[in-house]
Amino acid sequence: MKSPLQANVLFQLGPVPITEAVITTWAIMVVLILGSLLLTRHLATRPGKRQAMLELIVVTLDTQIRETTGAAPASYRGFIGTLFLFILVANWSSLIPGLTPPTAQLETDAALALLVFLSIIWFGISKGGVRGYFKSFAAPNLIMIPLNILESVTRIFSMFVRLFGNVMSGVFVIGIVASLAGLLVPIPLMALDLLTGLVQAYIFAVLAMVFITATVEESQPTVKDSTPVSPLLERES
């Protein structure tokens, strides 16, 4: 049995090795893009069942973003929604026999985590400016700067390790059980893997939102608290 930690290189494009995960990713991209083109044709003011389903997805995502960030969801919708959809489809691609999900490879999860890291910087600077972004590392005080820098790296690291560990372990367990017990025995584990894939996609997307929101909020200019006036004692002369 091949180690899941080792990438399966199918061919080389110059110095760039094209792995199975990359090919699967391209296939997922094609499916998602073609699916989007097909599903978003003929959108009307009076929606049908297909459009209602699409709008339900978008509205649910917008609601989740709005409740998490407290901001308008338009600027976050594309990034967070695509992350969720890609990870979900990638995780569920394990249902296709002989296909290893791209998220079971370390490079894919690392790439996703890297994009989250870069998006945190991008949204932090675009919402609070460069000064505001760097000021977010000094929250709540200057002493926390090293810890905040370390946290910004470790939390990203924990994201991709969590995703990678869950997906890879699922694939690994199913592979072991299938090799030992036969074809039909792993089916319950595959059903569990579906749930795990959904939960992990949700967790990754929500954590990305939380990290972006935390940075954006800390990069915003703070409003000085006014001196409390209560309890206010009034004496009658």
Binding site: V16, T25, M29, T82, F86, E107, A111, L114
Partner: peptide, 10 residues
């Protein structure tokens, strides 16, 4: 290389 390629893909 794969990491960068996957990042570009995403």
């Amino acid at each position: 290389w794969s990491l960068g390629l996957q990042a570009v893909n995403v």
